[in-house]
Amino acid sequence: MSHGPSAPLSGGALTRSRILDAAAALMTNVGLAHTTTKQIAREAGCSEAALYKHFRSKEEIFVRVLHERVPQFSETLAELPERAGDERGPAEHLRDVTLAALRFYRRSFPIAASLFASPELLATHRRKLDELGAVGPQNAGQHLAAYLAAEQKLGRLAAAADPYAMANLLIGACFHRAFLDLFFAGEAPEGALRPADEEEFATETVRALLGGTGV
């Protein structure tokens, strides 16, 4: 049953949403390391005191931006093992994963890249993930490998295939493609991106992965 459109945000929920929108824009354009809570508050149209009513630190805002303002990947993967054996089959599920991963990495890479320029900031981010109980980057491979292993037990993937190797190959391909998309920024030389279309990229990447396992 439809409940109609969601009610417009107001009050604290609206302020929180504006903070995340402002943070996502700043972190994309100037990088996490160069984004301050003062800048975020100014762009969001609120005070720093109001910002700290919703978030304890810039690192917490960053984690929330990844979870609420970036196309989701972790949810797609977390639900995947339960779908082993259903009517859609491995190829269709892996195609969904490929598109979700590509869109996630394309959006999150510019935001997260500056983490690696500061060992202290990266360490702080790892601690914040633990504090918030948020998933880390290793979860992608673990969830995907669990799904592949489940399909393997059902006889829908070749028994000799290594689920973790397959997961790493697929996620690595998506990460690399997202990097190239960002590097060329819509001005890639002819032939630099093959397949050029992301839907075709997903289809052909999965075809190559499954073909290599003898499925």
Rank of each mutant, 00 (worst) to 15 (best):
A160R: 12
A161G: 08
A161H: 03
A161S: 14
D162H: 06
P163A: 09
P163L: 05
P163V: 08
Y164S: 11
Y164F: 09
Y164M: 13
A165D: 11
M166F: 09
M166I: 07
A167K: 04
N168E: 12
L169H: 03
L170F: 05
I171L: 15
I171W: 00
G172K: 05
A173H: 10
A173C: 10
C174V: 01
F175D: 12
H176T: 13
R177C: 04
R177L: 01
A178Y: 03
A178T: 05
F179S: 13
L180T: 04
L180D: 14
L182N: 14
G186S: 10
P189E: 06
P189I: 10
E190C: 05
G191T: 07
G191V: 06
G191M: 09
A192R: 02
A192D: 04
A192H: 05
L193N: 02
L193V: 04
L193G: 02
P195D: 11
P195H: 09
P195I: 09
A196C: 03
A196G: 02
D197Q: 11
E199A: 15
F201P: 00
A202R: 06
A202G: 11
T203E: 15
T203Q: 14
T205C: 10
T205D: 04
R207S: 15
A208W: 03
A208D: 10
L209D: 06
L209N: 06
L209E: 08
